[in-house]
């Protein structure tokens, strides 16, 4: 709803004035597409600015998906704007040479180039072997440059924005967009910099997982729910973009120290896993809705985890344990090999304290000591057969919380639907977007 208002706003501004008439429908359509592309691009800053009020109804993992689709739309409209003029009114476009062309026309071309590069660098980050941190810096840099260039292009061209009445309103819309950017990139990191945390412990959890324990040096984190995550920046500065989302693994009533469990999977997380106690850190959160607290009236839970997707599930289980919540929980936990199963002993311990039933689903079981005596295991991948076999028939109405790689979740979802699990009872959190 808010998004729709944001998109329509520029058009309302234009039509509120007395827009100049032009006999060419195609030219006007091209301008219309240009404004639409700009509105869609502006909306991206609201989506990615972590503004809690706007994002509350959605799962945090869906925002990047939404961001991606809307970005394609924005670039498609931009290309449409360009193509229509190119095909029907090539004279309007002037010369390509930036020395001879008016600056605002060059700005338009720069904007188009920035946004196309944004999409290509995001869709093909792995193929281009772009490091996550550098990709993020490039992404923010290109987005800001492209957007500024696009604003320059619109104001410079002056179509529909040049009349006295409209100009003020148009500037207000522009200032609102700029405000979103200032909030995300300056105000929020500045607030974080005023509220540092300190790493007090870096603990080995086995299976390569490290747990960082942080103590607030100022305000503690308040009101987080089990399974929520926060953006963590260690060392450096909160302005640096060198931050990653991690699940808060401490149960909410066990503050003010909070901990994050980190499995070094390359890029920057290996560096985080080596953090020394005493290092300053910054936290932005909490975010996310992957929590048992959303389902206070459920009779039980089905949880499905793939690999490192276990972390938000662990946080939820810790909360159930801390509250002595004895509702049944059936956990299917998929890993490629038995050796890489994280929190194996921790899960076994919890199963003695709460009504937790864990089944480890191992794709490539070892040749020896298999199956293990003291754990329930299954071989292969989580598919429809396995779900039907392992999940209790009485649990179809229970919340089904899944977290893992997107292909795994996309394969499981239809199987659950077929078993009769209502759509509203399937909650998922996807790990890894770009």
């Amino acid at each position: 709803m808010v998004a729709a208002v944001g998109l329509v706003l520029p058009y309302l501004v234009i039509l509120s004035g007395d827009p100049p008439r032009d006999p060419s429908l195609m030219r006007n359509l091209s301008y219309g597409l240009g404004f639409g592309a700009l509105a869609l691009a502006g909306l991206q800053f609201a989506l990615t600015g972590r503004i809690k009020v706007l994002l509350r109804p959605f799962g945090a993992d869906i925002i990047p998906v939404f961001h991606r689709f809307l970005s394609w739309g924005a670039v498609a409209l931009m290309l449409g704007h360009f193509a229509i003029l190119y095909l029907w009114h090539k004279d309007d476009m002037g010369v390509l040479n930036p020395l001879a062309a008016p600056a605002y026309m060059t700005a338009g071309r720069v904007a188009l180039l920035c946004f196309v590069t944004l999409i290509v660098s995001s869709e093909f980050r792995k193929w281009l072997r772009l490091d996550y941190l550098w990709w993020r810096r490039l992404h923010v840099g290109l987005a800001l440059t492209g957007f500024a260039a696009a604003i320059w292009h619109v104001l410079g061209a002056g179509h529909f924005t040049g009349q006295d009445g409209t100009r003020g309103l148009w500037l207000a819309v522009t200032v609102a967009w700029a405000g979103l950017i200032v909030h995300t990139r300056l105000i929020r990191p500045w607030r974080q910099s005023r509220n540092p945390w300190r790493v007090v412990e870096n603990r080995d959890e086995g299976d390569d997982i490290r747990t960082l324990v942080l103590e607030p040096q100022g305000r503690p984190l308040r009101d987080w729910r089990p399974g929520q995550f926060a953006w963590l920046a260690v060392g450096g500065s909160p302005f640096s973009l060198r931050e990653h989302p991690f699940t808060i693994s401490t149960a909410p009533d066990k503050g003010p120290r909070i901990s994050f469990s980190i499995k070094p999977l390359g890029d920057d997380s290996a560096r985080l896993a080596r953090t020394k106690p005493g290092t300053t850190a910054w936290i932005d959160g909490p975010y996310g809705v992957f929590t048992v607290d959303r389902e206070a009236d459920a009779d039980g839970f089905v949880m499905i985890a793939g690999g490192v997707g276990i972390t938000p599930i662990m946080a939820n289980l810790h909360a159930l344990e801390a509250r002595r919540d004895l509702r049944p929980v059936h956990l299917l936990y998929a890993n490629d090999s038995w050796d890489e199963v994280a929190f194996r002993d921790e899960l076994a311990r919890m199963a003695t304290r709460i009504d937790l039933h864990v089944t480890h689903v191992i794709q490539n079981p070892p040749d020896r000591n298999w199956p293990p005596q003291d754990h329930q295991v299954a071989e292969g991948r989580i598919d429809a057969d396995l779900l039907a076999r392992l999940l209790p028939a009485k649990g179809r109405d229970w919340p089904h919380m899944m977290c893992g790689p997107a292909p795994m979740l996309e394969a499981i979802r239809p199987a659950l639907r077929q078993m009769g699990v209502p759509l509203g009872r399937i909650h998922s959190e996807i790990f890894e977007m770009v």
Binding site: R21, D22, G36, F69, G73, L77
Partner: peptide
């Protein structure tokens, strides 16, 4: 919310933008 719903919502917003562009173009064409 599932990814397909996100796609549908995104397509609706893009369609809305497109519709606005067409309305604008028709309105200001003399």
């Amino acid at each position: 919310m599932r990814p397909r719903l996100a796609l549908i919502l995104a397509l609706m917003l893009i369609a809305l933008t497109l519709a606005c562009a067409v309305v604008l173009a028709v309105t200001v064409t003399r």
